[in-house]
Computed example of a mutant assay.
Amino acid sequence: MIDAPYANLTPDLVLDAVSACGLWPDGRLLALNSYENRVWQVGIEDEAPVIAKFYRPGRWTDAAILEEHAFAQELADAELPVVAPLVFSGRTLLHHGGFRYALTPRRGGRAPTLESTEQLEWLGRLIARMHAVGAREPFAHRGRIDHATLIEQPVQAVLASSLLPESLHANYRNAAQRLDAAAAARQDAVGPVRSLRLHGDCHPGNLLWTDAGPHFVDLDDARGGPAVQDLWMLAHDEHAMQSLLDGYTSMRDFDPAELALVPVLRAMRQVHHAGWIAQRWHDPAFPAAFPFAAEPRWWEQHIADLHELADELE
């Protein structure tokens, strides 16, 4: 475990890394909101700024990162509004000062209006086109949205962490086991569903809107899984989901049985979020961003939430 994974990532190193690509930074740096990785907007002399993304050490293999880059380029080649990494001397995954990083063009935009039926249908059509590309072949290195990744591993991280009070270990374990069993039963009831390459973390924060329409950013959580994974986080209610599906099904078939998986995916995300905080607590950015996780009452509420999610599934 790296106690401070980005301790040596100084502004000078960021500028040097961009310079190493043959660009000329003008000294303007803007740190962008990112906890898992470190992301900077870097001003370039006489050119548009670029985005420099420094990957968290040890999270993904080089092969998995390159697979993300290839997927982004495949989507861009299909004329989808996805930002692909820039290529330098035939490479998209770059190394400097002990860090792995990639540069992409800066693409601005505003938050989407998810109460708009028109925008939701537009997003549905766009996601369907992404999925048509994603269905061509599976990921080889990026894993899947599954029990091991989103329940088992996060639960182990929480139980191994000093954040969870000892007095709550049994309660947390019981709640997690109950939720795990309920999620497995729901998945068994739904039966097999088709898996495809996904954006994976398709929430409003990874979506920007311009006068030309929407575009997606950050494929860092791209994995294999069911199509509904890229829809449910954009749907705040049943009407929104129906609007997304109206757009989606105008471009691509959708198996309605997948809708029964939404509570499972929601539960997995909640379990994973707590495990993610516990696993990353050694990174100084996490105690600063999530101070509530050091409070026993937050874990008491989390345990109650897990039981509530299990109730919904059962």
Score class of each variant (00 low, 15 high):
Ala257Lys: 13
Gly22Thr: 01
Val42Asp: 00
Ile277His: 08
Leu231Tyr: 13
Thr249Gln: 15
Arg178Val: 12
Tyr35Trp: 02
Thr92Asn: 13
Gln119Glu: 11
Ala257Val: 10
Ala289His: 12
Asp246Thr: 15
Glu74Gly: 12
Asp230Leu: 11
Ala274Tyr: 14
Glu295Pro: 05
Pro192Ala: 15
Gln242Phe: 05
Val83Thr: 06
Ser116Phe: 08
Ala260Asp: 14
Ile65Met: 02
Asp283Phe: 10
Pro25Asp: 10
Val83Leu: 05
Val264Phe: 10
Gly134His: 06
Arg252Ile: 00
Gly124Glu: 00
Asp311Glu: 11
Ser195His: 15
Leu164Thr: 05
Tyr101Asn: 06
Pro192Glu: 15
Phe54Thr: 09
Leu9Pro: 03
Leu15Arg: 10
His95Pro: 06
Ala278Asn: 05
Gly43Phe: 04
Leu66Val: 14
Ala274Trp: 13
Val158Tyr: 04
Glu118His: 12
Asp12Ser: 07
Ile127Arg: 03
Pro154Val: 06
Gly98Pro: 08
Arg269Phe: 03
Ala140Lys: 11
Ala160Ile: 09
Asp146Arg: 08
Cys21Gly: 07
Leu75Ser: 04
His236Ser: 15
Met1Ser: 15
Arg297Gly: 05
Ala170Ser: 14
Gly205Ala: 02
Ser243Leu: 05
Leu208Met: 09
Thr104Asp: 12
Val217Trp: 13
Pro226Gly: 06
Ala132Asn: 11
Ser250Trp: 06
Gly90Tyr: 06
Ala227Tyr: 11
Ser89Tyr: 09
Phe88Gly: 00
Asp211Glu: 15
Trp24Ile: 12
Leu261Asn: 01
Val190Trp: 06
Arg100Asp: 08
Val82Phe: 09
Gly213Ile: 04
Asp283Trp: 08
Leu126Lys: 01
Ala183Gln: 10
Ile2Arg: 12
Leu120Gly: 01
Tyr55Gly: 05
Leu15Cys: 09
Ala4Trp: 12
Phe54Gly: 11
His236Arg: 14
Pro287Gly: 02
Leu244Ile: 10
Ala176Glu: 02
Ala267Pro: 02
